[in-house]
Nucleic acid binder design. Structure first.
Length: 111
DNA sequence: CTCTTGACCGACG
DNA sequence: CCGTCGGCCAAGA
């Protein structure tokens, strides 16, 4: 039995899309925002939502990175050990990370 | 309801 | 490549 958390409709969409991400693949905040059909700074809101992951590890928020190829942040840290752990997890899934950056043209998954 | 901050992105110099 | 500014959504205090 699951423990359904009460989240806003917007947050539910973000979590739902994260679950769609196949293993060995990553996506960006911008692609998520574009998939939601919103325009503007939706990616900022996504970052706030993913910061708290009530569906972890069912929702692999660590597969969501920046459009710049940077891993971004993890557990609320934009730059720290948590981010290093995130990188390690991605490498474990078969993603090659160079200098803390991911090859978007190779691993970027689009909805 | 109002204000601030944020796991961001893109353009400019 | 790096620093700075603008953008205008969402959640918390």
């Amino acid at each position: 039995m699951n423990s359904p958390k009460k989240v806003s409709a917007f947050s539910a969409q973000v979590y739902a899309l994260c679950r769609r991400i196949p293993q060995g693949r990553i996506t960006t905040y911008k692609e998520l925002a574009r998939a939601l059909g919103k325009k503007g700074q939706v990616y900022r809101a996504i970052g706030h939502v993913l910061r708290e992951n009530p569906f972890a590890p069912e929702v692999p928020c660590h597969r969501v990175i920046n459009s710049s190829g940077a891993v971004g942040g993890f557990r609320g840290k934009t730059n720290g050990k948590e981010v290093q752990e995130k990188i390690k997890l991605l490498e474990k899934e078969g993603i090659r990370i160079i200098n803390g950056k991911v090859n978007l043209q190779k691993y970027l998954f689009r909805f």
